[in-house]
């Protein structure tokens, strides 16, 4: 018994070291004064200064943020409807196809999704003239498509764990199905929708392959610019970008954990969920 828990403990330590050391190294090197990765040239903010002057990276970051906000919002709306369809609408024709279309994007290799969407946009343009050019709009549509599946899964698992009796009671009292969804279901699944939005936002901000396929000339997102830079090797400015992103994520997670902790305490600290 003793040996096994030592084994588990050391695997856990090894696993977490494996997960976190590369990230910590990246953060550390973003403050390295030397442009060579090999030598520590002292502490400095020079790569952050360089970042402020780098129009290419700043514009790409701005474009990525815009796409991420719009696509996460649309994906949350569509994904919530999809979650309701999976869990509150009973049987309907084509349900199997629908569940397949929700599950498949979660694992589909990005090169296939990217290629297929680009070919769709090209064919649509030939047939209807729309989209007249590929760029931010086509990337946004692509991002909505794959991230709405993630939102749908999150929302539907929340709906599955929820008691339907409140909604049924409201319906029995004569509430219109739309009003019941708006006034009862949606407030109850709001936390799941928020997690879904955050996940969709992160996925959009991070996507390289699908954006490369669906973008046109001139529209380069942040991952596309980063990829073209790191293909040539270590780039100190990218270390700085990485550190900023990691910092924002860490802050967000600490904030979320604190909010959850406070909410649990307010509820009286009972329950382990």
């Amino acid at each position: 018994m003793k040996t096994r828990s030592t084994f588990l403990l050391s695997t856990l330590c090894f696993g977490f070291a494996f997960l976190y050391i590369p990230i910590l190294v990246l953060v550390l090197y973003s403050f390295n004064d030397s442009p060579l990765a090999t030598v520590w040239g002292g502490f400095s903010f020079r790569w952050y200064d360089a970042l402020l002057d780098n129009k290419q990276i700043l514009n790409a970051a701005l474009l990525s943020l815009k796409i991420a906000v719009v696509s996460a919002t649309c994906a949350t709306a569509l994904g919530t409807l999809a979650g309701l369809t999976l869990n509150r609408m009973g049987r309907f024709r084509g349900r199997t196809v629908f569940t397949g279309m929700i599950a498949a994007p979660l694992v589909m290799p990005e090169v296939i999704t990217g290629l297929s969407l680009l070919l769709l946009f090209v064919s649509l343009q030939e047939l209807t003239g729309w989209p007249s050019a590929r760029g931010a709009n086509t990337i946004t549509i692509a991002h909505i498509t794959f991230s709405m599946a993630y939102v749908a899964v999150i929302v539907q698992s929340r709906l599955a764990s929820m008691d339907e009796s409140l909604e049924e009671a409201a319906m029995d009292l004569g509430g219109h199905p739309f009003a019941v969804t708006r006034d009862i279901t949606l407030p109850l699944i709001a936390p799941a929708m928020l997690s879904g939005w955050l996940l969709a936002f992160t996925l959009s901000l991070d996507d390289l392959v699908i954006a490369s396929f669906t973008s046109g000339a001139g529209a380069s997102t942040l991952p596309m610019v980063i990829f073209s830079k790191v293909r040539l090797g270590v780039t100190p400015e990218v270390n700085a970008v990485a550190t900023i992103i990691i910092g924002i994520v860490a802050l967000g997670v600490i904030l979320a954990a604190w909010l959850m902790f406070r909410q649990e305490r307010r509820r009286g600290g009972g329950g382990d969920s």
């Binding site: 590369p22 990230i23 190294v25 990246l26 901000l205 991070d206 991952p223 990485a242 992103i245 994520v249």
Partner: peptide
């Protein structure tokens, strides 16, 4: 780590 950028985590291994 899943919430931080996938691309940057791959890049970390170049470093």
């Amino acid at each position: 780590p899943f919430w931080t950028s996938f691309l940057l985590r791959v890049y970390a291994w170049i470093v």
